[in-house]
Amino acid sequence: MSHTALIPSHRKPRQSASKTALRAGVAGGVLSTIAVAGAAGPAQAEPVTQTIEMPTITAGLSTTVAASAEATQQVALDLETQANQDAAAATAAKAAKKAKAEAVRKAEAKKKAEAAAKAEVKAKAEAAERASRASRSTERTTLSAPSGSSSSSGSSVSTASAPASSSASGSAASVVSFVQMQVGDAYVSGGTGPNSWDCSGLVQAAFRTVGVDLPRVSQSQSTAGTQVGLGNLQPGDILYWGGAGSAYHVGVYVGGGQFVGAQNSSTGVVQKSLDYDPPSGAVRVL
């Protein structure tokens, strides 16, 4: 066996005649086409003179940009406005809180001032009442002082210092008669008759029968005439309890150490001796 028998051959396999012819034809056709194009190219070439215009987008773009800028500016303005509103609201809330606190402080101060004023008024009233009681006590002591012919038990009353019973005359008699006719009537605060009275209402009505128009309240009635001493009383004189101008009770002296007055809701209108409730002073109107 030959030593080359097992070495494979490196020659290309033969192609068939039909494939060879096909390849030759294709190659020939391509070469022909190139030749024709080369021959015709320089003769048919013409310079390009037409300009192709690209669509212009500048106008639309500028409008879009402008709109976007305006929208951005509007947003910025809106944000600034909102910030200003928030700041104003915060300032207003702070001011309202401060005003409320100030109002509360003033209200408390006013309440304290009113309480202090009430306390002061009450203190003054209590002081006046104490002074009135002291004055009444002094008057009671004076009226109860025994006369030169006092008994061993000590005379209780005022008949020694008051004039003896004497018959009233004229207007004084009319006043005395009127008040004595009301004895037994009820006492009613603010009463002006005809069947119920308070102290000043009775006195006013009595003097009105003789054409004398007295003030309505006891404070004013206690200064309506000439002040007279309790040792110099005459029928028809107005008796008062408390200070002149600040009296809290009035009655009418009817003579003989007696007076008539609308005392209180328990007793009504009574006629009593002066030692029953010694007066503080007296005024003479008639």
Results as ranks from 00 to 15, higher is better:
A134I: 09
A107Q: 12
A173D: 00
V157W: 15
P146R: 01
S174Q: 10
E126R: 14
A116W: 04
R133K: 15
K122V: 11
P163V: 09
K112P: 02
R140V: 11
S152Q: 02
T159L: 14
A113V: 03
A107R: 02
S171T: 00
A113Y: 01
S151H: 06
S161F: 11
E108C: 04
S156R: 06
A131N: 08
R136H: 04
S137W: 01
S171K: 02
E108V: 09
S174R: 10
A134H: 05
A107Y: 05
S149E: 12
S152V: 09
S149T: 14
A107K: 09
G154L: 01
E139D: 00
G170V: 02
E139H: 00
K118W: 02
A123I: 05
K110G: 14
E108I: 04
K124Q: 13
A145K: 15
E129W: 03
A164E: 07
K122M: 10
S158W: 08
S165Q: 04
K110L: 15
T138D: 07
E120K: 13
R105W: 15
P146N: 03
V104G: 00
T159I: 14
A123W: 05
S156G: 10
E102F: 12
S156I: 06
S158G: 05
K100V: 13
G170N: 01
A162Q: 01
R136F: 01
K106I: 15
S171V: 02
A101P: 00
A131R: 10
A131P: 06
S161E: 00
A116D: 08
P146A: 06
A107T: 09
S165Y: 14
E114T: 06
T159A: 13
A172G: 01
A131C: 05
S158R: 00
S153C: 07
E114R: 06
K100N: 12
K100C: 09
A145G: 11
A128K: 13
